[in-house]
Design a binder for these strands. Sequence first.
DNA 1: TTGCGTGTGAACTTCCTGTGACCAGACAGG
DNA 2: CCTGTCTGGTCACAGGAAGTTCACACGCAA
Lengths: 288, 288
Amino acid sequence: MSSERSETLPGPGAAQRGQNRLRLAILDRDPGFMQVLSKRLDALGAEYRPLAAPLGADGLVAMRLNALLVDLAVLGPTGWSYLEQVCARLPGLAVIVCTGPSSVAQRVRGLRLGADAWVTKPCHPEELICVIEASVRRHRRAEMPALEASSSFGEITIRPDLYQAHVHGVSLELTAREFEILHLLSGSDRVLRREEIYERIWGYAMAHGDRSVDVFVRKLRQKLRSASPEWSYIHTHFGVGYRFAPERAGAGADEPVDGAPVLTDPAGELVVAPADGRSQPVHTGVTA
Amino acid sequence: MSSERSETLPGPGAAQRGQNRLRLAILDRDPGFMQVLSKRLDALGAEYRPLAAPLGADGLVAMRLNALLVDLAVLGPTGWSYLEQVCARLPGLAVIVCTGPSSVAQRVRGLRLGADAWVTKPCHPEELICVIEASVRRHRRAEMPALEASSSFGEITIRPDLYQAHVHGVSLELTAREFEILHLLSGSDRVLRREEIYERIWGYAMAHGDRSVDVFVRKLRQKLRSASPEWSYIHTHFGVGYRFAPERAGAGADEPVDGAPVLTDPAGELVVAPADGRSQPVHTGVTA
DNA sequence: TTGCGTGTGAACTTCCTGTGACCAGACAGG
DNA sequence: CCTGTCTGGTCACAGGAAGTTCACACGCAA
């Protein structure tokens, strides 16, 4: 994944993924307009979806949108009430009206009903997109919370809202940095080189020979192991870096059995087989 | 920071601070434009102030504005950097550019730098005001919602309508800022980073090294503790920020019992377990 | 086998956070 | 207009938790 991230924020929390992606629904009928707009949106990496007909508030909610672009001309006389209804019901949604020539009164009316911006066609697609982004940006400041969904891997649950990971409800007591690294790793399905990890967490280039990442991985593994002994999460790729993937622990059981007989389930299916190829048998060194 | 508050605080309780009023600064030089705009703004009951010259971020902060209307033409070439600087430093301020004819590239640039809207002169004053209001409205949504319902956590009751918190009916005598912070914290059940708190309370970006939030949290804890000793409300997440969650105080009871035998209920259920998962035991540093 | 790269444990440093004191501007009264 | 209080905000200090560096052991790769 490109993992764009235009941010230059060196500070903590830098680990957040591309949650900033624009999710847009478009209610318009001009094919040419849609086409040129699509091109720009694709280039931007935005997710968008054309709507054939006005969708009710509930439907819009289900789409988890950031913004709605609408041409009032498509709606006809009912457009105003639709606009009002949507704006009232989804105050967190950025609503941008982009329609043909209009009177000041109409524009005023639209804005008063709750639209965030009114752009007159014909317009330059780039500008329109900027307007949409500006609106979304503004809205986003208010709605940060929803951006942080917690996720689970194997037995652990990662909670960005608490800066913490849990196993069966109990905290792993991760420190801020430990959490950031775990969060970063768990968010990528591939091997991350040390330099990459360092750069994204610390915000600047890793000095040659710096072992910080190793040390943190060790601490992480330690905490993960003691909380979830039967799973291994962080795998070492010799000469490369680390990869996150929940897997049932040591099948070979080189562990002196200390009571609880490891539920040896050779070749047992992964409880949370993480989709595709994130489980290639890599010569995994020590893990956790 | 000049804490200046020109507010028209009516009474001591200073319930709602005229938050709903538009507070606008205008950086423009067209007398005719200013005059016609003034008329509309007066009719609207808005507070506004013309600026003779670009005012630094700190100056703008001191004015406690909702919005800034600026004509890039009066700034000349430095306008762009000024715009960028202001938008970066005051993320909560709605910035509307209203200037003469411009190219798409210029408008795009302005919006990308953080402007919320770009209106081209000549324009209808009513429409301009609607655009300003739309921009401000978005920002305001974040703070408006809870301004009404009072809520309780543990032993304290938070009353937005009185700008005060109570325990068993007696006021905590919180100052305005203390209350705002408590209100903000109690309103979100997740860890809030200091920068986040600062930005939402003070309205602009926190300077590096600013300890204000810490100090206020300390004052809050002090008052909370003396009014509700057996509960801890504000938890520190080292290296991250603070989180609000009512919890029974020190279970370990390292306190020499001083009379009232604490209803020791080891592992007892929280009296007011606030719904879902906001009560996971997180490695809480010092609390209150 | 040799040579690195990595795991480990512990010592060492840095910087984070809690606190108490202090300073300056804003109000309220006289 | 002057003065006493109060609130918001800044400092400097201290204790500690977290982060970084080291030296050594172990294992994989050639």
